[in-house]
Design a protein around this nucleic acid. Sequence first.
DNA 1: AAAATAGTGTCTCTCAGACAATATGTC
DNA 2: GACATATTGTCTGAGAGACACTATTTT
Lengths: 279, 279
Amino acid sequence: MDRASGRGRAQGEDSAESDLQEQERLFLARYDRTAFPAFAVTVDAVLATIHQGRLCVLLVERDDYPQRGYWALPGGFVGLDEDLPDAARRKLAQETGLGALPAGVHLEQLGTYGRPGRDPRMRVVSVAYLALAPDVAPPALAPATAPSRARFWPVGDLAGEDAPPLAFDHADIVRDAVERARAKLEYTTVALAFVGEPFTLADLRRVYEAVWGAALDGSNFRKRALDNEGFVVPLGSEAPRAKGGSGGRPAELYRRGTATRLERTITRPRGSGELRDSL
Amino acid sequence: MDRASGRGRAQGEDSAESDLQEQERLFLARYDRTAFPAFAVTVDAVLATIHQGRLCVLLVERDDYPQRGYWALPGGFVGLDEDLPDAARRKLAQETGLGALPAGVHLEQLGTYGRPGRDPRMRVVSVAYLALAPDVAPPALAPATAPSRARFWPVGDLAGEDAPPLAFDHADIVRDAVERARAKLEYTTVALAFVGEPFTLADLRRVYEAVWGAALDGSNFRKRALDNEGFVVPLGSEAPRAKGGSGGRPAELYRRGTATRLERTITRPRGSGELRDSL
DNA sequence: AAAATAGTGTCTCTCAGACAATATGTC
DNA sequence: GACATATTGTCTGAGAGACACTATTTT
């Protein structure tokens, strides 16, 4: 409203204009605020991270009906005065047990799932969000989520015989989320959301490899990462100390650049993680 | 529910399983279906088409409060038993005055806009859709929409001094829609939704030029269009008769292929319709 | 013939991908 | 030294973009 009124019309220009505003006030005062179909609106968040070289998503085992015992995305009702992304952040903070979501976490809207009957209780429209975060130390996650069992599942384990049963249409949402993440790594800098600072180019490359489920040539990856202005920023020529242990030349350290899009895309190997394998 | 239950568990395997189903039935029977914040859910559709070489979107001048006199996207409340895309289709059919939306129209979810306060009446969450259609003859559109004034606006005319005032946050939605359309022309076949069948490669190229607001080299465009398996299908060597009139070698005719993605992308000229110019 | 539009062919420069070679650490 | 990892350098083939040229029509 604020935006529109400031656009095409000069403000308070004459009586016709203020007349309109007066009539709008009257209209709103008389408006029956219950005269519409009542929907429940929820958010569901797909929190993805890289753990042990695998792309994982956070799922919570439902301890209440409906779909008790099924695994679901963290989510829940949106408050009537709450913005949608705020609701997603709130639910994620609750389920991960962190007071608030760390600052570097990437959050974007994924899509809205509102098929009638997707929830047996009532008509629910769920706005799904995709969140990307660096590998969280499992101990930080476990204790606060004592009542409801939460854990990160490798997306590769969500299909097949030993896969957990997913509640509602959450399998669809996870599939769309993984697809989105895989695609956006090519032309945006969101891969940075998966690494903590500082990081090495090998760390960043391993993110791509985990998400795409394919090996990348270190040499060519480096070229493209460095060719992209504002993607990664070298931190002097610092040299880190042993991470895993097994030797090798020490890597240079980097921090995240400010760019959000890659002008020279980092293309995934043909036929890597499309839709066929893993999930 | 159907999907999940068939996944991780064998069905009706033992009494524990049927016990769970029984308890879920009981839970649902007792569930208080009013114990959630009541949202209004609407759909808004951005119907885009190419008219006279320009990308246009359908807007309706509101004849009722709130935001009377402002231009809005076709849209409205979703029915409690209505699927979201169905609601978008229904609203589009109403506003365009067509009985039903033509078959070839492309419809995809764009995003969900739910900022508190975006509608002064109540908390409204609106699921926006992007629809792409061939140039509709204006006479087919005009009469049925007599009460509410509807017209196609060139997106280039939606910014600047003479722009119509847009209701609510519809300027945001249109901006996102145009951005989405411009991006998807590069790597999908959605441009086909803008042309009627049969079409010439020049017709298709003009779609790209209109959406991107930049001229393309006919020769290179042809190469990429034909190199993409399943994008366009030549219809023998038919030759059409004068369209505009002014001479020239007759073009070959094509119909839409079945592919939905382009493996060899059609890249837009650097700095064409990004966000800066036009909208 | 001139103009207009469609279609073909060619050249060049960039870049992605493969991979060889070198640097620097651990065991 | 053997091995592991990071970094630098080189080669080649594919493709994008520019553009010259041919083909077929109207005026």
